[in-house]
Structures are given as C-alpha cells and as structure tokens.
Design a protein around this nucleic acid. Sequence first.
DNA 1: CTGAAAGCGCTAACAC
DNA 2: GTGTTAGCGCTTTCAG
Lengths: 332, 332
Amino acid sequence: MKPTIYDVAEKAGVSIATVSYVMNNQKVGKKSREKVLKAMEELNYKPSLLASALTGKRTTTIGFLLPDLANPFVAEMARRVEDRAHERGFNVVICSTDSDKEKEALYTSLLRQKRVDGFIFAGDLKNVDVVKELVGEQTPVVLLAVSHPAVSVNSVTVDDFTGGYQVASHLISLGHKRIAVIAEEAISSRERIRGYKHALQDQGIEIDEDLIVTSDSSFEDGERLADELLNTSHPPTAIFACNDILAIGSFLAARKKNRSIPGDLSVAGFDNTLLSKSSDPPLTIVEQPIQDMCSQAVDLLIEEIEGKSTRKQRIVLLPDLIIRQSTGPCRF
Amino acid sequence: MKPTIYDVAEKAGVSIATVSYVMNNQKVGKKSREKVLKAMEELNYKPSLLASALTGKRTTTIGFLLPDLANPFVAEMARRVEDRAHERGFNVVICSTDSDKEKEALYTSLLRQKRVDGFIFAGDLKNVDVVKELVGEQTPVVLLAVSHPAVSVNSVTVDDFTGGYQVASHLISLGHKRIAVIAEEAISSRERIRGYKHALQDQGIEIDEDLIVTSDSSFEDGERLADELLNTSHPPTAIFACNDILAIGSFLAARKKNRSIPGDLSVAGFDNTLLSKSSDPPLTIVEQPIQDMCSQAVDLLIEEIEGKSTRKQRIVLLPDLIIRQSTGPCRF
DNA sequence: CTGAAAGCGCTAACAC
DNA sequence: GTGTTAGCGCTTTCAG
C-alpha cells in the first residue's frame, strides 16, 4: 500500500499532527521537521489530496465547461486556461457540452459532487439556471467569452458588438453594401450582428434580413449557407462570418463556384485561430485576445475561490480588427 | 451546509448504513428504500464523491496527458477521449506537457495524489520512467498514438511505418524521386520516416538524408524548413510533412515563392484534421482513425481500472491514405 | 434486512 | 512545540 501519514509519523517517531504541521508549514521544532522530512523522503510519501480535501481544504481542481473541444478556437482557450490554472496550482477538468442544456446540467452536477473549487463556462451557455444555482450556493463561477445579463457573476468577454461594428465598417469602407452575415447559434453572435446592423445604419445602408443566416458552426454548414447566399438573384459582395470555421466554409463555397477572394467576394471572420492564418488568402478577422481573456478568467475565479475577491466584475476587452487579404474593394 | 448522508438518514428515520445501501443498490426493504429515496429527493442530496473515494471506491476520473491541446489533432483526440470517458461515467483531467519531461513527471505526480483511476498518455512521451513507475505501482495506463518498446503497457496506435510507406509510394508512383520529409521531434515521426525510407529502397531510389529535416511542429517552422528545402540547388519535387500543421506550413512557403501546388510541388500530410480539409488545394494525407483509436484507448483503460483486463495488448490500427489534390505528377 | 461501529487519510482544535 | 482526539462523509464488516 501507499504510505500514509501514519507511516511517516511512525518512521519519524512523532505524531501525525506534527507530520501534518510540517506539510502545511506550521511552526515545528527544527529537529522534528528534519526527521519528518527525512521520513517522507525515504518513504516517497505523497499526501492524499482526497483526504485533505475531505477535511475542508480545496480540491485545487476547477471545472471547465465549453461547447466543443474540437473547435480550434475553443481548444486554444482550453490550453490557455489550463496553463494559467497550472501556474496557480490548479488542475482543470474539461467537459464539452455541445451547447446542450442537459449536458451542462449533468456535468456541472457531477463536478460538484467531486467538489471542484469552481467553474468556468466558456463560449456559450444554454442553461442559465445551472449558473444561477451555482451562484446561489456560493460556488465560484466565471463566464468566459460569453456573458449573461440574467446572472450576477464574474465574466470576461470581448466586446462582440464592437467587433461586429468594426468588421461591417471595414467592409462598408471598401464599398460593400450587400454584406451577408453567417452567424452561429450563440449569444456572442447576436451581439456581433447588433454591431453589424448598427454600422450599416450609421452609413445609411438598408438592412436586409435575408442576408443574415444562422448555422451550426461547421465547415459544411458554412459552405452550404454561403453557397445559398451566392445563389440568390441579388447575392452579397461580402460575407461576415461569425467565426473562423464559417469563414473557411465560405471560402470553400466560393472556390467551388470559381469566385476569387477577395476579387469576387470579400470574406471576414472572427476569432483568429490557426485556420485564419493558414488560409489562402489569409483571413481578415476580428481578433479575440484569447490569452489575456483566459488568464483573467482564471485569476478572477481563483480570487473568488480564495475568498479574496471583493465585488463581482464584468471585464470587457476590446477586440482588434486585423486586416489581411480576404477583404478588398467592392467591384460591383 | 450541503446535506450529508446523516441528514438523509435522520429525515428518513433509518441509519446511514441503510442510506448507503440504497445508493449502492444493495438489498434494502421496499419500505426503507422508499423513505430514503424520498428524503434524498426532498433534501436534494448529492453524495460526496470525495468521501466515497476515500473509502476505497474509484474517483471515476482519468488523467490525460498530451503534448499540446492547442494542436488541432491533439484537441480532436481530447474530444474523442472525453466523449468516450463520459459515456462510461468518467471525467477527464487534461494536462498539456509540451513534450517536456519535467511537466510529464509533475502532472503525473499531482494527479496521482488526487487519486485518478488511471492515465492516458497521448501523442508523445519523453519521460518513460514516469510510465514505468506507474506500471510498477499497478496504476492503469494506456498509451495513445504513441508506443514505447521499453514498457509493457496497453497502447493504441496507428501503424506509422505503413503510413510513411504509403505516402512515399504514392509520391513515387507519381514520378517523384526527390521527396523531402519534414518531421516532428516525436517517436511517431521516426517510424514514418522508416516507412518512407523503406518505400524508396523498394523502388531503388537513393536516400538523401539532407532531404529529411526535423521541426518543432509549428506553421512558422514548417514554413521555414520548407523554404530552406526549396532554396537548395537541387530542391525536392515533393514534401511529406509528418503532420497537417507542417504541411500547411509548406503551403505557405510555396505560396510565397509562387510555386503552385501540386503543379510545382506536391505536398502530403498526416493526421487529417480540419486544416487538411480546408486548405486549398485539399491536402493528400494519411488519415488516423482518431475516433476509433480514442474509444479503444479509453475502453482499454477502463477495463484495466475495473480489473477486468486480461493481458496487456498493443492495438495497431491501419491508416488510410486519402488522395486529394495537393499531390500530382512530377513534372521535372 | 438493518443498525452500530470501525475505518479511509488528513486537519484542526484542545490540552500538556 | 507536540501529542490526543474528534471529526470530514461515506463504505463495509459484523451483529442482531
């Protein structure tokens, strides 16, 4: 069997309390401390974090619920969250919810039974009640890259409205008037669309609701929707895709139709993942400061876990429009 | 405070043992069972998995160590592993090691203290001793998309040798003789290179070691190495990239030099991630059956955790060469 | 069938 | 300073 605190105590000729004290850096006589350290060393003793957590200490584990780890943008967030969490001594258990209410509830419940110290919900949130319940029971929660007016929790987001506004303005400045939007079924997209509409209005361009479509955020669906848009009698000259995957989907549709980008069609995306850097031409996008967002989210959560946090806050970072080669002057 | 088993017992007018029995589906009188169930319901009781694990039950958590979650191929594996694990009632804690010996050791140690039920190591393994130690202490382990002759553990891999052989043969059949390889610093790449060499030899083509280079597996490095290869006096007419990222890096290099693909340069990759489907032209690649590999890995691990497994096994799946448009006849 | 009681490994008063 | 001891919440003999 693995050595326990009793084994160490016995070997060191002290009581288990003393062993516990040295582990937790409490006042202990120099002699005793050394004996204990030596015994731990010799036995290759590793304290059980389970037992320790049972007595009221933290589990130093946080639950991270996200829509889909296979999505590159989400995966990158996960990596950043993980990094920051590790830096601060926490582990992360990741659960992909597929933006499904039941899964959100199920995984949250399970992780609570495992006594995770807190939760981060990223990218989307279908089941607000889950978060409300968590908050009601004083469980630390932070929302990342998504926020919700109905709950009072810490959140870190990018200003989606501004992002949408920036993209639309950029496209308008290039002379585009018929600008389509391929959105995802998520809260963030709604804000981006709002920004987009606002920009059009500011420039006195009429909004055509037929140009705004919603997808399930896959290459295939992006391609299909872009194709449909291009097949209409009065097709758009530019597409604003609400994430990189949908943008690339649009690329595929354009390619099949032999439309050149940005010659025949301008395409802009959102996120700035690997996909946007590797595409041909490179994608004009709104960049989300992933690293920054994730670090802040983790820090916020840990402050709350450690009870140091004062008041709830909503951190909104400003996105950057990065103009690359997928957008160009309107030729029509 | 959260309700405990005592609260339920009291409310139901039975002993905690009885409550425990109904939770574990043991024989309990119908009357008692109903009372207990009712009390649990009313209190919204959720048993602490911590306490339960402390008494010897599983934590139903597995540790998943991988090189880098931000890599699309790795992220997809993570998603598949997570899915399968959830299906089987397990949670997954993910740790990116950056293929670093220290991190591998550190995270493993930490997770053991948290009493995870088993480990999956994916994609790479720098610190074999870590695995050896785990095995020595009867901790269930499986290697995924990587294997190591020095340890006797369950593993699920794709036949890298065959994959390399397939790519090289395909390229040779198109008339290519100078075929470069951009490898990663990982065990799997070595096998792929072996397969590549074997194919060349079988066709009587001389091996030029200068055409085989190693990268750190980023776009930038792939681009840089491809660029260097193309700048030599006797450049390759085809590149075999050991993963999709490096293949796309090669695309970028070719694009900068205005070399068309596959006209001036054929490029083939490995993995079959989103990147290979979205590139222009779509990438010829060796497909790893990710889903299958991951399910089997999780199943193997859980069998071992549940003590049902018989003997250690090494599962080797055969890869498929998928010919798309990035490879074509040699014109030189 | 069900209850009493002894742990699981560690923490934290409370005494000495 | 250091030891004793009572839990943390649950499982599991062992009686009855």
